[in-house]
Every structure is written in structure tokens, then in C-alpha cells.
């Protein structure tokens, strides 16, 4: 494994010094503001970025948004003493962070997390080498050309409100094969039987918490891109969904049809780019992240129980 370069961005130099010593085995780069961080990203092959959120000038999320363009494969971690609710939700939707870590952090856990993040970064760059980048311009072109013909990708919507499910189906069916379910257990079955690209779930599902369900779905089917739809902005839910569920988007109701459509489009592209490739080439490595029962017969409550145990004891954030 080649040496992974780390980048720490924090306006507090003492944090940077402390982190540098914790990661003395790695080539470490530090920046006291976002601009400086972007400079480093342009000139060094960074695998993992750890940034603070509240910084003068440029916030952590603003920095990450630009970092995504400069170094798309670098794994992004937000580590902050406090950030408001909107910032946490933005860290999902805008920063697309890999982990959200609270300060003060635990040294060993952070080390394990960074170690794992390096692994993920390496896989990402492998995929990119195999499948040369899709330029942003092509992406939008791709969407419009897809408009007329039916997409090969399948979507799964889970909501306790059946009329919502129907309207999702009506809206997306012309383009995608849509599965709908009001029962999380049934949805799990669909997820196992069909090659679902994007899973959209409401947070309030009755029988099982939608957040739990999304986390379980990701554990069962790591390739699936998950989206939470909720009327509740909650920082705890958002942090759990980032750290345990690698959720792709946190959508707060009400939203327009158009914004849901765009979210689904970009989720499909995301799926196509990473996970489809991943399944063909280096899938086992990615799957190893979750030591969760994979047997097709395991019920949802059993999966949830073993996940709870797994997350309570896992060495990373």
C-alpha cells in the first residue's frame, strides 16, 4: 500500500500539532484555513481530508464542496467541536462526507477511521483508473439523452403512506423500474431479489425506524445508494446516517418534484460510477467493511440486532 497523504484543516494550530503527532506514521499536511487547504489539494495526492467546520473565511463544508472537485477520490471527514443542524445536513448533501466526528475525539478510534478511510480512498482511485472519469458536462448530457428511453436502473421507494408511494411510482415509472413497499421487511426482500440502484425511504415507517432500515439496507447491499426523506431535521439522525449508513442524501420535506428528480438522477450516476464498477472488480474489499450476516434468510430484526452490536463495538467512528 503506497503511503497515504493526509490533510488536516483547522484554524487552531494546537489541534494541527496534536493531530500531526497522532499520525506521525503518515505524510501529513496541515492548513489553518480552507483556501490553504485547497492549495495543498491541488499540489499533493491527498487520500484523506479531516476538516473543522467553523473557521473564519471558509467553512468546512464550503471547503469540502470545492475539495470534491479538486480531489474527488479523497475521503472527506468533518471533525468539529460543534456545528449547527443545517451544517450537519449540508455535510451529507453538500460535503458528501465519509464520517462526521465530534471533538474531542478518541485517538485510537480516529486512527482506525483514518486507516479505513485510506483503504476506501485507494479503492476509489482504482475504480477511477479502470473507468476514466466521466466529465461533468457528459453527465448532464447523459441525463437528457436518457430522458426518452427507459433506464436500466431500478429504484425502491419505502413509505408508510401508500398514496405517496403511488405518486413516486407514477413520477419515476416512465424512466425507471420502480418498486414500492410500505413494509421495511418486504422492502428488504425486494432489495435482495432485485438489483436496486437507489433506495429512497421515509424516516417514519411505523414498524421499524426508517433510519435503522436504511442502515440495515446498506449493510445487506453495500452497493445501493440510499436517500432519507423526512420532515424532521435532526442532527443525531444525520450523524448516524453518515457514520453508520453512508447515506447519500438527507432530503427534508417539503421538496419539489424537480429536486427529487435531480437527486435521483445524481444518485443513479453515483451508483453507476462507483458501485457497478466495484461489483465487477474490487467488490469484496468494500464489502469487508461490514461484518454483518449476509445470509439471504436473515430477517430484518436479526440484522438490526447484529448491526447494533457491530456499531457499538466497531473500532472506527
Amino acid at each position: 500500500m503506497p503511503a497515504h497523504h493526509l490533510l488536516f484543516v483547522d484554524d487552531e494550530p494546537m489541534i494541527l500539532q496534536s493531530l500531526s503527532l497522532l499520525f506521525e506514521d503518515y505524510p501529513v499536511h496541515t492548513a489553518t484555513n480552507g483556501q490553504q487547504g485547497l492549495e495543498i489539494l491541488r499540489s499533493h495526492p491527498i487520500s484523506v481530508i479531516i476538516t473543522d467546520q467553523r473557521m473564519p473565511g471558509m467553512t468546512g463544508i464550503e471547503f469540502l464542496r470545492e475539495a470534491k472537485d479538486i480531489a474527488p477520490d479523497a475521503v472527506r471527514i468533518l471533525m468539529t467541536g460543534y456545528s449547527d443542524l443545517q451544517a450537519i445536513i449540508d455535510s451529507v448533501n453538500v460535503g458528501e462526507v465519509f464520517r462526521y466526528v465530534n471533538k474531542p475525539w478518541q485517538a485510537e478510534k480516529l486512527k482506525e477511521t483514518v486507516h479505513f478511510a485510506c483503504h476506501v480512498a485507494q479503492q476509489r482511485s482504482l475504480i477511477r483508473k479502470e473507468k476514466p472519469a466521466i466529465p461533468a458536462a457528459n453527465l448532464s448530457l447523459g441525463i437528457s439523452s436518457l430522458e426518452s428511453q427507459k433506464s436500466e436502473f431500478e429504484l425502491l421507494f419505502v413509505d408508510s403512506n401508500s398514496s405517496h408511494l403511488q405518486s413516486f411510482k407514477e413520477f419515476f415509472e416512465p424512466k425507471y423500474t420502480c418498486h414500492i413497499s410500505s413494509s421495511p421487511s418486504e422492502a428488504l426482500g425486494i432489495l435482495r431479489r432485485f438489483p436496486i440502484a437507489v433506495l429512497v425511504s421515509e424516516a417514519n415507517l411505523g414498524e421499524v425506524d426508517g433510519v435503522d432500515f436504511l442502515i440495515a439496507a446498506k449493510a445487506v447491499q453495500p452497493e445501493v445508494v440510499t436517500i432519507l426523506v423526512t420532515s424532521i431535521k435532526d442532527s443525531k439522525i444525520a450523524v448516524r446516517l453518515i457514520n453508520e449508513g453512508q447515506v447519500y442524501r438527507y432530503l427534508v420535506k417539503p421538496f419539489s418534484r424537480e429536486s427529487l428528480r435531480l437527486t435521483i438522477e445524481s444518485a443513479v450516476i453515483h451508483y453507476k460510477f462507483y458501485h457497478e464498477q466495484l461489483v465487477r472488480s474490487t467488490a469484496p474489499a468494500m464489502k469487508s467493511a461490514f461484518s454483518v450476516p449476509q445470509a439471504n434468510t436473515t430477517s430484518l430484526p436479526e440484522i438490526l440486532a447484529s448491526l447494533r452490536q457491530y456499531f457499538a463495538t466497531r473500532p472506527t467512528y
Partner: peptide, 8 residues
Amino acid sequence: NTPLGFVR
């Protein structure tokens, strides 16, 4: 939490 972070 910032000083707590580096102190810890």
C-alpha cells in the same frame, strides 16, 4: 471542544 480536542 477545540481545546478539549487537543488536550485529550
